[in-house]
C-alpha cells in the first residue's frame, strides 16, 4: 500500500513538474497575471473606493460576495462542531466547592434535584487552583490583546488587517482566558447562547448591508446606493468597515465555539 502510494505520488509530482516549464518566471512583472486585472486594481482602487489597503479593497468591495460566502463557511464550521459534538446529557456526579473556606462537597447520583447557594462553585474531580503567575499575567494581558484585535479590525482599510485577522485575535483572547483559568470560568462570562447568536448575527450584519443596498435600488452589496443617507464621500470605505465588523463578530464567536466543543468533547464541563 505504501509503495503504491509512493508511485502514484511520484508520478503526479513528476507530471506537475514537467508542466511548470511553461509557467512565467518567478517575480516577472510582465507575466499575464500581473497585467490585466491587477493593474486595474492597483491604479484605480483609491479613486473608486478611497481605501489604501488594496487587499481589503478587493476583498470587501470588488469581490464582496466571495467574502460573504467565506463568512458563511466559517459559520458552517462553528455550527458543524456544535451539531456533531454537543452532548446535552446531564452529569450524574457533582462536586461543589465552597469558595470562602475551600471545603469540597461530593454528591453522587442524586435522586432529587440539588440546589446550591451562591457561595458554592460547580467543579470537576480534577480541579486544580489556577497557578497564580499564569492567572495574573493573563488577566493583565487579555484586555490589551482585545484592544489590539479591535484595532486590527478597524484599521483594515489602512494597514494590514481586516475582519478575519481581528476576529481570530479576539477569539484567541477568550481562549486564553479558558486556558489560563478554567473552561467553566469562560462559559460563565460568555455563554454558549451568546456565542451562537453572535456567530449568526455577524453574517446577518453582512447580509443586511447587502440587502439594504438592494432595497435602495442597486444590486446586492452595492455600497454606492447608501450615498443619499451617509454622504457621497468615503461611502465605499464606510460600507467596507461595516462589512468587516460583521466578519469579525462571526469569526470571533466561531473560534471560541470550535475550541469549546472540541476540547470538552461537547460536554462543556472541563477542557485542557
Amino acid at each position: 500500500m505504501k509503495l503504491l502510494s509512493l508511485i502514484v505520488v511520484c508520478l503526479t509530482g513528476g507530471l506537475l513538474l514537467y508542466g511548470t516549464a511553461d509557467l512565467p518566471d518567478w517575480g516577472d512583472p510582465n507575466a499575464p497575471a500581473s497585467l490585466h486585472l491587477s493593474n486595474y486594481y492597483i491604479e484605480n482602487a483609491i479613486r473608486d473606493t478611497e481605501v489604501p489597503n488594496l487587499v481589503t479593497a478587493v476583498l470587501a468591495d470588488y469581490r464582496s460576495i466571495d467574502t460573504m460566502l467565506e463568512t458563511a463557511v466559517v459559520f458552517c464550521a462553528g455550527l458543524a462542531c456544535f451539531l456533531l459534538l454537543r452532548d446535552f446529557t446531564p452529569k450524574k456526579d457533582h462536586h461543589y466547592r465552597h469558595v470562602p473556606t475551600g471545603v469540597i462537597l461530593h454528591v453522587k447520583n442524586p435522586d432529587r434535584q440539588v440546589i446550591v447557594g451562591n457561595e458554592f462553585e460547580d467543579m470537576d474531580k480534577e480541579w486544580l487552583p489556577p497557578d497564580t503567575i499564569i492567572k495574573t499575567v493573563c488577566r493583565m494581558l487579555i484586555p490589551f490583546i482585545q484592544i489590539y484585535a479591535l484595532y486590527v479590525v478597524a484599521h483594515g482599510d489602512f494597514s494590514p488587517g481586516g475582519g478575519f485577522q481581528g476576529g481570530v485575535i479576539l477569539g484567541s483572547s477568550f481562549i486564553l482566558l479558558a486556558i489560563s483559568y478554567n473552561l467553566k470560568y469562560l462559559l460563565k462570562r460568555v455563554s454558549e447562547k451568546f456565542l451562537g447568536i453572535l456567530s449568526a448575527a455577524g453574517v446577518l450584519v453582512y447580509m443586511g448591508i447587502g440587502l439594504a443596498a438592494m432595497v435602495l435600488g442597486g444590486n446586492f452589496l452595492d455600497y454606492e446606493k447608501y450615498a443619499p443617507i451617509f454622504g457621497e464621500h468615503h461611502i465605499r470605505a464606510l460600507g467596507m468597515l461595516g462589512v468587516e465588523i460583521g466578519v469579525g463578530m462571526s469569526v470571533t464567536a466561531v473560534m471560541v465555539i470550535i475550541y469549546i466543543n472540541i476540547v470538552s468533547e461537547g460536554k462543556h464541563d472541563e477542557g485542557l
Binding site: 497575471a33 500581473s34 486585472l37 491587477s38 486594481y41 492597483i42 488594496l54 487587499v55 479593497a57 478587493v58 476583498l59 469581490r63 466571495d66
Partner: peptide, 8 residues
C-alpha cells in the same frame, strides 16, 4: 506594488 488579487 505587488499583485493584490492572489492575496485576496
Amino acid at each position: 506594488y505587488m499583485n493584490p488579487l492572489p492575496h485576496v
